[in-house]
Write a protein that binds this DNA or RNA. Structure first.
Lengths: 208, 208
DNA sequence: CGTATGCTCAAACGATCGTTTGAACGCCTG
DNA sequence: CAGGCGTTCAAACGATCGTTTGAGCATACG
């Protein structure tokens, strides 16, 4: 039978947390399991025991954040359509707000850097994993953009979406611009940043 | 005395070429010197003989492309100002055109992927190298943008420039969108792409 | 109590990493 | 021809990599 109290959850979580930090700092290949387990305060063998391999650990680092992130995105998109608030700004809000909220959490900004790395790396297995598990989210948003921008050709639309996502990924990976200002509350700054990114994205998508 | 015919240039060039390919594919840490020298058809020790270390090789991979790229950018910016064509579109053209021309060369597109990797990696030594050697270029263009967009606050301007450069870097690193179409000539497609990126950047910089 | 079970641990595995070494080669110069 | 020089080469260096092993520990269950 299984143990009633699964003590391994603590170890697993500490590994995932340390992995997120080190992957953001040194990359997937640059961060070794010895650095990682030392930072997490666990034994070296714990990674292979709990995750099977380093590659599986990388997948879990993505899953832990992207499962909820993309679920929130789709939920926000759905409720926007349902309530009739489905202008371009609303669709972009549904896409941007969950990611920006995540990047303002405890170590969520580090994950955005990990995500930016994954975009830059043209590693096929990683891209395949992301496409298989989260491709439908991007597809749904793309369809929504196509509906709201019917005058754009398919090629034109894809290109603009590509440029906008590039800008957002770049910005949210924490290049210093999206930092809390001292004289405004965290909630107010988050709202300012969201409106900022939405206006930029709208301009990039709708320009003549 | 020195050898009249420097035969080592062939070896050095082959190493630099192979390094560009493998760094783009597997990253700086992921590409080993053994893979690299095997692909270049040279001996393993040749890298340390000609470049001193792997890190120095990485620097030279950047230097070989960025020296001419940024020189072209500054030259284009200078001649634009000189001839009076210094609207926002012209400044952006001076910034984008040399990079896009490079990305259409033999293996130039691979270098743009290497560059995108460098942006994603928050490695301090690499960022310091790029800032020390090519920071003045970005500073000069930023000053030009500030002159042409005087109604924007400093913070606002930096943010927009950050988003635009993120979009351009992302797009030019070859995510499939900027590919030659079959039914247009290379020169025409290059011109279309440039105008495309410029219009996007103008929209992102000037939106109200 | 005895014994599975889940987990942690130190130690070692073979492989591969960047780098160094010293001999050998080809070529120019005096 | 002799000697020096720039370059290439196979081989080895110590370090570090991801992974595996088997003993040890604690807890839950018959």
């Amino acid at each position: 039978m299984k143990a009633i109290v699964n003590r391994s959850s603590s170890t697993k979580e500490r590994i995932l947390g340390a992995a997120e930090v080190l992957f953001a700092q040194r990359g997937f290949e640059g961060a070794s399991l010895r650095q990682l387990t030392a930072a997490a305060g666990v034994n070296l063998a714990a990674v292979n025991y709990h995750f099977g391999s380093k590659d599986k650990l990388v997948e879990q680092v993505f899953r832990r954040r992207l499962d909820t992130l993309n679920a929130q995105r789709l939920a926000a998109l759905g409720s926007a359509r349902e309530s009739g608030n489905d202008r371009l700004e609303d669709v972009l809000d549904a896409f941007i707000r969950p990611a920006l909220k995540l990047s303002h959490e405890d170590s969520g900004s580090l994950f955005m850097r990990v995500l930016a790395r994954a975009f830059a790396e043209h590693d096929d297995s990683l891209r395949q994993f992301l496409s298989e598990n989260y491709g439908h989210v991007m597809r749904q948003f793309t369809a929504e953009f196509a509906r709201l921008l019917p005058h754009l050709s398919k090629e034109e639309l894809y290109w603009r979406i590509d440029l906008v996502t590039g800008a957002l990924t770049h910005a949210m990976s924490g290049f210093g611009m999206i930092q809390r200002k001292q004289d405004v509350s965290e909630g107010a700054h988050l709202e300012q940043t969201i409106q900022h990114l939405i206006r930029f994205a709208v301009a990039g998508l709708t320009h003549p």
